[in-house]
Design a protein around this nucleic acid. Structure first.
Lengths: 139, 139
DNA sequence: TTTTGTGCAAAAGGTTTGCATACGA
DNA sequence: TCGTATGCAAACCTTTTGCACAAAA
């Protein structure tokens, strides 16, 4: 049977707190590369006492133990994703949405490479349909 | 004969101010992917009245008109570079230094791509020589 | 009971903004 | 002169930190 979130936490020595659980569940349910702020607001809807610091703590714990992936571009807020398979990213010029792109290996560059990351930019399918530009709606 | 910085500015409709000139010259002389803060300190050594805002203004003007390239990683300060030929980046895990890597075209991913950027990570030559880790010295 | 995590508030780091003044063309 | 840049200070946004308290295991 499937591994539960609780199991995953235990397997990595992470305590299963409600806040942490919520963050993980949120990321598994919303594959939209949420920012810490997005998640903070979502958590707050359920538990108004939850704090930003806790969201950041949770995200770091999850990221450190390989349950979520983190990535950031150009001085914008970091984004988190429950997809931990190797992949690259496509960022929409218009709405800023981030989409996953299949993994490909880097070319050799004559030195040892520990990690590789590729970012594509262009206009996403949604935005190229509509002629008008509009901001991505908040989660 | 060679195009001067002043010519380059004029050709793009940028006024040639001492601050702007200094920033451009600095980037042409130091191929170290300087941060705004690095440049601010350098400017300040020459002209103690220069302000951060002006450095940012200058960098944006230069970047907008294609005289310098800008790139940022993972919540660290943006870095600027007078090398505007297409290239990718290698970032040292230990000292954080950024080195240029030759350009290669992206694989096709089934949609129109306007821009592509690749980031390699690993330990740079300098750091793998020394056994000990040490911070990159400030400029 | 013993860690580890949480909440709060304050601070830090990087960047942007508003506005009056200065200056290049 | 005219319009663009500059300098300053304050604001902004994201993230981190310190510390007392709470709650998992």
């Amino acid at each position: 049977m499937k591994e539960t979130i609780g199991d995953a936490f235990r397997a990595r020595g992470l305590r299963c707190t409600p806040q942490r659980f919520f963050v993980m569940e949120y990321l598994m349910r919303h594959h939209v590369h949420a920012t810490a702020e997005d998640i903070f607001h979502a958590v707050n809807r359920t538990d108004p006492r939850a704090s930003r610091a806790t969201v950041y703590n949770a995200l770091h714990a999850l990221s450190r133990t390989g349950l979520v992936s983190e990535f950031a571009v150009n001085g914008t807020a970091a984004r988190f994703d429950a997809n931990v398979d190797r992949h690259h990213h496509f960022i929409c010029d218009r709405c800023g949405a981030v989409e996953d792109v299949g993994w490909f290996d880097p070319p050799t560059i004559g030195r040892r490479v520990r990690d590789f990351e590729a970012i594509f930019r262009g206009v996403c399918a949604g935005c190229s349909e509509l002629k008008t530009t509009r901001k991505r709606s908040k989660l």
